[in-house]
Design a protein around this nucleic acid. Structure first.
Length: 149
DNA sequence: GCCAACGTTGGC
DNA sequence: GCCAACGTTGGC
């Protein structure tokens, strides 16, 4: 799950302990939150746009998808007038902090690992903010030395 | 800050 | 329902 760390980072989550993943306004990303994510599942918290770009830590889903009420708040930057309490379009999940990576696993690093060449995040033009990770990819990333520094 | 790649919108 | 125009994302 990608976030720009100046807005919401793994450090923010580590401080708050629990939070929620709101503001997603892309249908594919929404569908993962609404239809796929289960309580107890882990995710990589990825910092986008701002160096160092890459995997910054791990979070856990603590509540499955439910309507994102920021969508019907006219003062919210992600306000969407097509969404309403009666007809919610956008969803979010609740999350908790699990672990911070001692050293960010950079995108460049991920791209350099042959076993991860099929991982969505390293594909050219891939800008979806929520992406599935296969068990094999997850295990491979977890075995990288960056976690033990 | 640039711009390629992508998603969405809206005229037809 | 097509697709050009536009807006956004995000790596560089």
């Amino acid at each position: 799950m990608k976030s720009e760390p100046n807005l919401f980072s793994i450090t923010h989550l580590a401080t708050d302990r629990t939070s929620y993943w709101s503001g997603v306004r892309n249908y594919q990303a929404r569908n993962f939150m609404r239809d796929q994510m289960q309580v107890g599942e882990l995710f990589f918290f990825y910092h986008s746009r701002i160096e160092p770009i890459g995997i910054a830590g791990i979070g856990e889903i603590v509540r499955t998808g439910y309507p994102d009420d920021t969508a019907w708040d006219p003062n919210d930057e992600h306000y969407d007038p097509k969404s309403s309490p009666d007809h919610p379009i956008w969803y979010r999940v609740d999350i908790r902090f699990v672990r911070k990576c001692p050293e960010i696993i950079s995108l460049k690093r991920l791209k350099s690992i042959p076993a991860l060449k099929g991982m969505q995040v390293v594909q050219k033009g891939m800008r979806l903010s929520i992406q599935p990770v296969t068990p094999a990819e997850w295990n491979h990333v977890m075995n990288l030395p960056e976690w033990r520094k």
